[in-house]
Amino acid sequence: MDETGKELVLALYDYQEKSPREVTMKKGDILTLLNSTNKDWWKVEVKITVNGKTYERQGFVPAAYVKKL
């Protein structure tokens, strides 16, 4: 869990989004888990830094590609 009590997951593999509802992740990324009720796709939040500014983006990743921490 992070400092706000949200559950975290670890990306076990790289994943490139294939639709606007998904998010890209790299092996080793730590993501915030938002919803894991679907056994195949989990909703996560990723933080992306571009030119020194951090953005948060929500989307789905394959559940088999992440592990709860």
Results as ranks from 00 to 15, higher is better:
G28R: 01
K26A: 08
T49R: 11
S36Y: 07
L8E: 07
A64E: 10
R57N: 05
Y65L: 12
D2N: 10
T54Q: 11
K53T: 12
K68S: 08
L10K: 07
S36F: 06
D2W: 04
Y55C: 12
K53Y: 15
R57S: 06
K6I: 12
V46D: 03
V66H: 00
Y65V: 06
L10V: 15
L69H: 05
E7V: 15
K53S: 11
L34H: 03
I48A: 07
T4Y: 15
W41E: 03
D40F: 14
L31H: 02
P20W: 08
P62Y: 02
V66F: 05
G52Q: 07
M25A: 02
T37Y: 08
A63K: 06
L69D: 03
K18G: 07
T49Y: 11
A64M: 11
R21L: 14
T49H: 11
E22A: 04
T32I: 14
W42C: 04
V9P: 00
D14A: 06
T24C: 06
V61I: 08
D29E: 09
S19P: 04
G59Y: 02
L8K: 13
E56Y: 15
W41S: 02
T4N: 15
L8F: 15
M1T: 15
Y15C: 02
D29N: 05
L8G: 03
T24Q: 04
V66K: 00
M1N: 13
Y55L: 14
I48E: 08
N35F: 05
N51L: 11
K39I: 12
K43P: 01
E3M: 08
K43G: 05
K6N: 12
M1R: 06
V46N: 11
K67V: 15
T54L: 14
L8D: 04
W42P: 01
G52D: 11
K39A: 12
K6S: 10
Y15F: 07
L34T: 04
N35S: 13
E7Y: 10
E45P: 00
D2S: 11
K27N: 04
F60R: 03
G28M: 03
E17H: 07
N38R: 08
T54V: 14
I30S: 02
E45H: 07
T37N: 13
G28L: 02
E7F: 10
V9Y: 05
E22V: 04
N35E: 15
V66R: 00
D14Q: 03
I30A: 02
V23D: 00
A11E: 01
A64T: 11
Q58A: 12
L31P: 00
K26S: 08
T37A: 12
L33N: 01
G28N: 06
S19V: 04
V23Q: 02
M25I: 15
R21I: 13
V23Y: 02
K47R: 14
N51H: 11
E45N: 06
T24H: 04
L8I: 08
V44Q: 00
T37P: 03
I30W: 05
Y13K: 14
G59Q: 01
E7P: 09
Y65A: 12
K18I: 06
R21K: 11
V44H: 00
T32D: 06
Y65F: 12
N35D: 15
E17C: 10
V50P: 04
V9H: 02
E22I: 03
G59C: 02
Y65D: 04
G28V: 02
E7S: 13
K67W: 07
L69N: 03
G59F: 05
W41G: 00
R57H: 07
K68T: 07
P62A: 02
T49P: 08
V66Q: 01
E22S: 05
I48T: 09
D14N: 07
A63P: 04
K43M: 15
D40I: 14
